[in-house]
Design a protein around this nucleic acid. Structure first.
Lengths: 131, 131
DNA sequence: TTATCTGTTATATAATTTATATAACAACAC
DNA sequence: GTGTTGTTATATAAATTATATAACAGATAA
């Protein structure tokens, strides 16, 4: 899997890692049941610390995206977490400030929805390309 | 203006303030040209430090939402910033991880778009209610 | 057995971010 | 003069982020 971290970003490395892995799942680059590199291997590949990778893995485990076995290693969950009520509420809370700014800047609703659709399309495109 | 800060939130206070003011503009609660409380007054009202308010004000000034005059005080810009290319790119970057997780959790695109629409509708509702 | 690989845990340190506390300054209004 | 504005400076504390080492238990392979 191709992973790009931006050391200059204001977003913490572990958060960038979490996002990258979820994006990998969304695009089908990472399939359910698939193995991920060990914390030490990935840390070395990315040139970052082992604990930073470990933190990202455990956040993803807490959300149900990963399974971690003490000796077998880390794998993508075979059954991915669902879009339950808690996720809906979190997503709503995350979207609110983004949409508020869009409205304040006079961005048309259709324009915003088109942007969302293009992002969905991007992920779908990679998914179908993989299969 | 009604401002609610969550001291338990993982989001920094100054960021919550920025979001709250942009939301106020989006809902029409805060009108272009309108005056905002002084940094000291607002800080006292919210029970937080002056510099925390000052930081939020200056971030909003840097984005063109506020005007700050040395003695006249702080006002909402009479001409709000537009949804330029930089904003589009920033919004795209912010939406990507949110949509990636929605896709990973099997949330339907229409479902996600409906959530966005309901947030637009909420702000529109308050806008028309104010006028 | 020995060596190597897992994730786990512990400890320590450094840099940055967040938030607060005080204080003083210059420019304006009353 | 007094009080208000934003501005600037300094200091401190707490939390977050990231790194550096080290050791441990369990499994696997040479």
């Amino acid at each position: 899997m191709l992973l790009e971290l931006d050391l200059e970003s204001e977003r913490p490395l572990y958060q960038q890692l979490v996002n990258a892995i979820i994006k990998g799942i969304a695009t089908g680059e990472l399939q359910p049941g698939e193995s991920l590199p060990s914390v030490r291997m990935l840390a070395q590949d990315l040139g970052i610390n082992m604990h930073t990778v470990n933190k990202a893995y455990h956040l993803l485990k807490a959300d149900g995206f990963l399974h971690i076995h003490r000796q077998k290693g880390v794998t993508i969950a075979s059954v991915l977490p669902s879009a339950d009520r808690a996720f809906h509420e979190k997503t709503r809370a995350d979207l609110e400030p983004i949409i508020a700014e869009a409205v304040s800047r006079g961005m048309a609703e259709d324009n915003f929805l088109a942007l969302c659709r293009s992002l969905f399309a991007e992920m779908r495109a990679k998914r179908t390309a993989k299969k």
